[in-house]
């Protein structure tokens, strides 16, 4: 069946099997930052923003995102123009194997969109669906708080210019 959605700002129509899961539809379409870690919604590596809300795409049918706006980490930034969350993750030393990183960045993005000045506890709550085996989470939490500060600074600077 045909599935039409806006993915990272581009309206795309994908051919998918009716029982296809969102993770497979996206990976097959080349969005390989969506990682497969468990297939049960427990690890968060496959997180995608659907209308801005982070969901585990391995427990979402592709058909459920018909007409929706999807964001994968490829849509947030590139190595040339990284999103502040990407830079903060790198600077904090939060990226070890990196397999959980895209998903965490997306959940963190949703958190910061909603709450630009979170506490460490807010960050822990927001990331509790993302399993990481390398880091012990310490540096990811630091990174999200740091990114929040960067984004606030940027917003303040932008506000001042206007």
């Amino acid at each position: 069946m045909k599935l039409t959605a806006t993915i990272n700002g581009v309206r795309r129509t994908l051919e998918v099997a009716p029982r296809a899961l969102l993770i497979d539809a996206l990976r097959d379409a080349g969005y390989t930052s969506v990682k497969r870690g468990c297939e049960t919604g427990d690890c968060g590596a496959c997180t995608v923003l659907v209308d801005g809300v982070p969901l585990a795409s391995c427990v979402v049918f592709a058909g459920q995102v018909e007409g929706r706006v999807l964001t994968t980490v490829e849509g947030l930034g590139t190595p040339d123009r990284p999103h502040p969350l990407m830079e903060a993750m790198v600077d904090a030393g939060a990226v070890q194997c990196g397999f959980c990183t895209p998903g965490m960045i997306l959940s963190a993005k949703a958190l910061l969109d909603e709450n630009p000045d979170p506490t460490a506890a807010d960050v822990k709550d927001a990331l509790d669906g993302h399993l990481c085996r390398c880091t012990g989470y310490v540096k990811q939490i630091e990174a999200v708080l740091d990114a929040a500060a960067r984004l606030r600074t940027r917003a303040a600077a932008g506000g001042g210019a206007r």
Partner: peptide
Amino acid sequence: TSPRKVDALGMAAGAAAYVDD
């Protein structure tokens, strides 16, 4: 010193770097 991990930015940006990518 603790410079950036050399491969970290690509990973954070979702580069197709792993076996199955």
